[in-house]
Amino acid sequence: MGRVYLPATLETVFEILSREPSARLFAGGTDLLVRSSAVRRNEGSLVCLERVEGLSGISESDGAVRIGACTTHGELMAGGLITERFPILREAVRHIGAPAVRNMGTIGGNICTASPAGDSLPALYVLDAEVELHSAKGQRRMPLGRFISGPGLTALEPGEVLAAVWIDKDQGFNFHHFEKVGQRKAMAISVASMAFAAHLDGAGSVVRARCALGSVAPKVFTSQALDAFFAGKPLNEETLGAAAALVREGVSPISDVRASEEYRRTVAGNLLMRLEGARAAVR
């Protein structure tokens, strides 16, 4: 059978990867170990990142919060900082799988798997998250939106490891909403999801909004035109109906065993309608 490495430092990870470039990285195992049959576990090595120093935990600096890539969804939910600063992220993560899966799966894993149905991704897009990448050569940062380029495709280079996610502390939103549509209420893979955050003025009109939808395009669907469309408008049926039409035009869903393209497109728009009366929900 293949080897399993349990390195304690990133340096060791880099050494392993330079020696065995085909070695596969994993953290919680909720994706890789599902996909890898007994046979494939025989081939090539696995590198488990769960004990690598500096990859876990949530910390804050002056203007931003750093979430280690191996922070589990369960830890994210329990972290007071996330609940306080980024409630939409907590809400999105709460919809992942069920407790045991959340105790294993990590934010870094959710990002690197780059599934169109990744539950944390729309919220991270709305929050303009950045990724911190390390390799033997050094480190770099880039926006999440650039890091993920398609289903299962990322800008991760050979020998490179996702170390953390950065989110600016001051998002300036006073309203947020997340909704996931699956085939059931727990252990559900998203058929469509929407993360929406906005700054609403005293009269309930949108000053600035960010909207991102999951499972309705090869990667998370966002649109500057859509975000701009909300500006200056109240979240009423008229605004939302028009926004829903923009969404339905913009998304490019697929049909699969869970749902058809038409259903995903329809629901993607419908999810916007739930924002009606949002003013009452402003904290």
Partner: peptide
Amino acid sequence: YLVREGRQETGDLATYIVPTSVD
């Protein structure tokens, strides 16, 4: 349990959906 042209499409508990405790 979906079968297309005789081949199973819902071959595991991630695609064949049964109720969970919250359903």
